[in-house]
Amino acid sequence: MSDALLSLEGVETHIGRYHILHGVDFAVPKGELTMLLGRNGAGKTTTLRTIMGLWRASAGRVRFEGADIAALPTPAIAASGIAYVPENMGIFTDLTVAENMTLAARGAKRLADIDTARLEWIFGLFPALRKFWGSRAGVLSGGQKQMLAVARAIVEPRKLLLIDEPTKGLAPAIIGHMMDAFRELKRSGATILLVEQNFNFARALGDGVAVMDDGRIVHRGRMRELAEDEALQTRLLGLSLAAHQ
């Protein structure tokens, strides 16, 4: 795909003696939100970690803006413009919300150096962060921690956001809030690769979709097409989106 910001070509990943990813191929177009779906253990988290260099690809290419980043160390991959929100959120619970944000803003030596207008935009997306700005991140609820994790990823403009299961374990009201925030992120032109198990969340937000099973990509296409084809959903995911209404 010519407008792909990120593309994986035949990516293989081994963890110890286990062969997890088997020739993963898919692309993330610029300015779109691409959903990466699949059952538990399909290899979605491993794919994100391989893109970030946290686990090394044993074969294949990971192209970001045309350059192969598969062999780069994680800090260099992050510095090239990719932000990552892991499944466990990666919040520094002993640090305050403000300190977490200051760390994520690589260009800021101290809190005052963070772009105020951008910070206000983030507070608009996640008002709870303003309220708990000086509090230890450890005292936040699960939903607030997830908001902080996403806020940290966007504290400075990034070219690509990799986000792993942002709705995991969240109450429906918080999921709704998170959905609004992602809609606003999409409007801002962000390119996002999002791993998700919540099919309604995926259907509401996804532009493109890749489905994984047993470490392989078994489907690539538009989210709208998958959302309309119950037989395909059942075949790929084991159940249909209608079952989640």
């Binding site: 994680t74 800090p75 520094f92 619970t93």
Partner: peptide
């Protein structure tokens, strides 16, 4: 200081510090 923040964060989760773009 930012270096101090990085040390405190690194003690907690060094993988995340690297994912934020810092060489631990």
């Amino acid at each position: 200081t930012k270096i101090g923040l990085l040390i405190r964060a690194g003690v907690q989760d060094r993988e995340m510090v690297e994912s934020l773009g810092y060489r631990i």
